[in-house]
Design a binder for these strands. Structure first.
Lengths: 331, 331
DNA sequence: ATGAAAGCGCTAACAG
DNA sequence: CTGTTAGCGCTTTCAT
């Protein structure tokens, strides 16, 4: 009951007040005197519009939901930050949700966001295929996949060229002369892991190196998983010299184990991983690193969803971004 | 127009449908037959309530805003995750906002959240005193400060015992025999920096060590700040042996510089810092670390705000949590 | 045991 | 140039 207060103060009708307060005074040729009176009253009464009421009336909330699998992961931290910033520039608020890699949470938040009438959802999903009951709950809500995507879906998406990057990353290690390169992977069956493992395989094949089961693991995307996988690996092959990690968290977990191991054995291990750019500076050791451009990825996702919401059809709705691969302190 | 659809299907009135769908069938002694018919129709039509409409009517949104200064910082990542999880248990959704250490963003989000009628806001503020225009915009919204707090405020808060922890952390380095201990601090005038610097000073004084201006800096809380401060420090004192960092990001920045420096000079530098627990495992070097218990902090904040919203007055509205201090690989 | 009607605060179509 | 009216979808008071 806030426009109402202004009405009581000024005597003007709701519509006139609404128009003035939404900057449509000119458009409706409302007199200067009226405009000034209303603006003054609004100021005096510290008027703030009720967004709920406006959204209900307008049937749009100017809000986007962003669902990420692990907000503790700095990768998603940066991605969220960039997306939020860009969306704000377009006038949208962002509701950030963290599923913590739990599929049930994903379904929960998808529903919550749709029930809240968000205009769109950007999601890095845990699920590996289209949610079967999505059609039931989705109103007009636009959805975009980011980073982790589905094969065969009409849902627009943007991701990195994980296949090529994993191949390049593995090749770096191969060219350094390593013939046994371990792979510490994410959850089996997920898009990211599949692509990166495929790239790893491609690199081995290109250099006619064999695939060695004992030094390949798919344990998940967390620090704990990385720790466990590295421990297993050292049991399976105490003499391993090169390790490729599926992401930054697995790398962190693996490094914990490696550091301890090297102290006792002085057997140096060369590591390669995705998105460990922040670590490249703070370790003395050689590192091979595939760095995704999160600025570009955020831009692509935001542009996709904003355009969809505004009803614009676009040429490309499925984007694969290049990933930079480089080595640090090698040789 | 969704209850409406069920009405058209079943012939029952809005009120009855609303009651059944909100589990109040028993309370209003609605017949089993009616109840079943409505539930069946809702299911068939995939009914989902419009949260906007409900919130507008109920004058509460069951939503809490969480404002953090830097979501890329894993410290706030974990804190956000825990708070969100706990709030969900209480039936609240969380809207996470990231101010990126920019004061204008903080004011913006505060307004946005209040305009959206959130029931409460948990905030780790950038500002160092109560927002002067808060009273104007705040409706009934409950507000809680976390981690970074204000002196002299009625706003409830929860934070760690930064003073004591900084003192203990510094003492560890002193007891190792260091007499010149540098301090790389956060933004001057902020609560966290003030308390931690005071603790540092207290430790020096307790051991009758002098405060040396040249090796004390207040550059901010970011990785970049840490990097810059460490570079300055090495210029000021190329022979420095012990450094205390105000937080994990400053530590990361400083470490980048230290690693390079040590490679060329073989002058080992001992580091101490707040909330670098995740790093303790992955470095071979000795580290002194003050670790906050984010689970406890999240619990305290959530319990504070939920109780306030429910109108319960509590005994303690200003909480200081203990911080664990420990050293790794020392000696 | 159920329904009619009011109203949360806002905007827009229509009317003048 | 401004006002009247309807309605977004929901819950609740009051009535029967």
């Amino acid at each position: 009951m806030s426009i109402k207060k202004i009405r009581e103060q000024t005597g003007f009708s709701n519509s006139t007040i609404s128009r003035v307060l939404n900057g449509k005074a000119k458009e409706f040729r409302i007199s200067d005197k009226t405009t000034r009176a209303i603006v003054a009253a609004a100021k005096k009464l510290k008027y703030r519009p009720n967004i709920l009421a406006r959204s209900l009336r307008l049937q749009k909330t100017m809000t986007i939901g962003l669902i990420v699998p692990d907000i503790r992961n700095a990768f998603f931290g940066e991605l969220s930050w960039r997306i939020e910033e860009l969306l704000r520039g377009h006038g949208y608020s962002t509701i950030l949700c963290n599923t913590n890699e739990v599929p049930e949470n994903e379904e929960f938040y998808l529903k919550v966001l749709i029930d809240r009438q968000v205009d769109g959802i950007i999601i890095a999903p845990i699920h590996t295929r289209e949610w079967k009951d999505l059609h039931d709950i989705r109103r007009g809500t636009e959805i975009i996949l980011i980073d982790r995507i589905f094969y065969d879906t009409d849902i627009p998406w943007v991701t990195g060229d994980n296949l090529k990057a994993a191949e390049a990353l593995t090749s770096i290690l191969i060219k350094k002369g390593f013939k046994r390169i371990a792979y510490l992977g994410g959850t089996s069956g997920t898009y990211i892991n599949s692509m990166r493992f495929q790239g790893y395989q491609n690199a081995l094949k290109a250099h006619t190196l064999p695939l060695i089961d004992d030094i390949i693991q798919f344990g998940g995307y967390s620090v704990e998983a990385g720790e466990a996988m590295m421990q297993n690996l050292l049991k399976a092959d105490p003499d391993i010299k090169a390790v490729m990690c599926v992401n930054n968290l697995v790398f962190q977990g693996a490094m914990k184990v490696v550091q301890g191991y090297e102290l006792t054995t002085s057997n140096p291990i060369i590591m390669g991983a995705f998105d460990i750019h922040p670590f490249c500076g703070i370790f003395k050791r050689p590192l091979a690193c595939a760095s995704q451009n999160l600025e570009k990825m955020a831009q692509a996702a935001v542009s996709l969803i904003v355009n969809r919401i505004q009803g614009k059809r676009m040429r490309k709705t499925h984007l694969i971004l290049p990933i930079r691969v480089e080595s640090h302190r090698f040789r």
